[in-house]
Nucleic acid binder design. Structure first.
Lengths: 343, 343
DNA sequence: TCACGTTCCCAAAACGCTTTGGACGGGCGA
DNA sequence: TCGCCCGTCCAAAGCGTTTTGGGAACGTGA
């Protein structure tokens, strides 16, 4: 095992009290003594035992993330890894541990209760909120500080969240396509139980309405966001009697599927047909360069992770700072995948 | 706060000792008493405080994962999320917590030492081993149980690992292409500092040698596995004086890039040109259906996560069960992306 | 009746830290 | 010189568990 506070104190001829205070920056310890303690600690590679420390202080110094993995659709959200990377960075810098719990999605409530009762975490981040998500009320009732990545409509009580402006994004993207003369615009969305997908559809519908276009149910799809889903959506829609001239995709993965579907039909993006996607800036799917492949509404999910973590740490430190909210705007980047409608 | 053992004991008119023993299944407690205690515990939603428990037992009941995030190439391995999902499942089922630590890649050694010194974990899983990875020796010296996901050549001392048979996989894939008459086969590999990439190249070279083909450096690339990397590799190689007739890709993402590069040149996979990729069975990039899009060497990284977790838990429970190793074979699935060489 | 096991329970120590409530001198002003 | 405060340190009591080392009550066999 490693060296303990008591051992360190003994080796210095000091009491544990003094050593503790010296290392934690309390004023009532002689500067010379402090220096001596700090050097000895560094030399002995002393690190206070996390569990003992948090038992004594009552703070867990850890943040929990619960990831539900449904047994039906076994999708692990690809966005998750980058979000975690961002958040983890901030936790580490602030001396917090990140604990992940993978649970079957019917055991999520139990997972939160358990984390709370065992005192394993000081707060949690809620992932993938649905349109009317009961988890928010449950967490509020539990009294565990939490922050939602996204939002959930239909919950009236205020809560803390960080979200991107999904509605505005897709409104703007749709508008952009309309300005190019497109009137047959397809929406290839994520599952609409998810709050973000619902908001995106609202943005899309709003822009259509503003342009005097009647939405066509044949041009709207929702499903788990995989590559083949995008492929099939593109192939099938393009064969409609009155096919779309533009596509709005909910993620890069789906957009790649759409691209493949369209080029299999001999269509070239930007010339024959337009595609706009949302781009989370996943590191292995960079959409940059002089002219990005896709025109996209862009927002770094990594940065979202960082901000979410900072907000939650603040909530933990000062619980009475009230619900914190942040709405991140996306940018519309011009790529090679859009152009005027082909007549 | 939640209810403590002492409170529970008091409310039952028992001593903490007895309650503890009752709940932990010790024999020296009356069956009736045990029943009473269990009911009271369930009613009060009692869960033992993790930190107190592990302080008393000396076991952290947690496994650590350290993910290095380099500041230069900020790639979060997409494979990571699915591996974690698999491992997390097993941890949860066994009452272990998963703790993640995101560190700048020059701080990785420090992170392990820190986790060890603070006693935060009972073991760690080492991700993304390089060809000659010093971390293995460091962990061995630390005395913290660990398991490597992958292997590292050039480390002589035995250690525990779980890997897929990369060399055999790529040997077989190359062979498969040779059997179709291909002699100009390109390898679009991951960074060869990574051990898996090095092994794949060995498999590829071995098969070429067996077929009497001299490897061409112009047909071998290595880089971070992004979609644009695959795209560029395909486009540039296809314009060589003596272009490849087949591609071997190190991941689905890269394969999609290659596909896009080739179809931009008007080439059709399986007919004009062949592509084989390694498929980790990431949930959002399913390569299935009646005829999968890509011919692939396939192995579920999610399952790898589950197995790795089980192995590590075993190592933690019985440290003297010696280094554990497991080599998973991949399967070669036939897709639509390969065919005889076009003459 | 007595010695001796069982059965069932408990008091107290321990895990490694923080924090409370002093203790002990030395310097200062009066 | 005395009294007081301040700077510096420490002993001991927690935090919520587990675990060690009994101990009382109740048979049981001789």
């Amino acid at each position: 095992m490693s060296v303990t506070l008591k051992q360190l104190a003994a080796s210095l001829g000091l009491s544990p009290t003094t050593v503790s205070r010296a290392l934690n920056g309390f004023p009532e310890v002689n500067a010379a003594t402090r220096k001596r303690v700090e050097q000895a600690a560094a030399l002995a590679n002393y690190h206070p035992n996390t569990r003992a420390k948090s038992l004594a202080t009552g703070r867990a110094q850890a943040i929990g993330h619960v990831i539900p993995v449904s047994t039906s659709h076994e999708i692990v959200n690809p966005v998750f890894a980058d979000f975690i990377a961002g958040a983890g960075e901030v936790y580490a810098r602030n001396g917090y541990e990140m604990i992940l719990r993978v649970v079957p999605d019917d055991g999520e409530a139990r997972a939160y209760r358990d984390l709370m009762a065992r005192g394993s975490v000081d707060g949690v981040i809620l992932h993938g909120p649905r349109t009317d998500d009961g988890r928010v009320a449950m967490l509020a009732e539990l009294g565990l500080p939490f922050l939602v990545h996204g939002r959930t409509s239909g919950v009236s009580a205020p809560y803390s969240w960080l979200d991107i402006n999904n509605q505005r994004s897709f409104h703007r993207a749709t508008e952009f396509l309309c300005d190019f003369g497109h009137r047959r615009i397809a929406l290839v969305n994520g599952l609409e139980e998810m709050d973000f997908a619902m908001r995106r559809r609202k943005g899309y519908l709003g822009a259509l309405a503003a342009a005097g276009i009647t939405p066509d149910p044949m041009l709207m799809r929702q499903a788990e966001m995989t590559e083949p889903y995008g492929y099939r959506a593109a192939q099938e829609m393009i064969q409609l009697p009155d096919p779309p001239t533009a596509f709005l995709a909910s993620s890069m993965i789906v957009a790649y599927g759409i691209l493949r579907g369209l080029s299999d039909m001999g269509l070239k993006l930007g010339r024959d047909i337009s595609v706009i996607t949302h781009d989370d800036e996943l590191s292995y799917l960079p959409n940059d360069g002089d002219v990005p492949l896709f025109t996209a509404t862009r927002s770094s999910v990594r940065e979202a992770g960082r901000r979410a973590a900072r907000m939650l740490l603040r909530l933990v430190a000062e619980p009475e700072c009230g619900p914190l909210t942040e709405l991140m705007e996306t940018s519309l980047v011009l790529g090679a995948s859009t152009g005027p409608v082909r007549t």
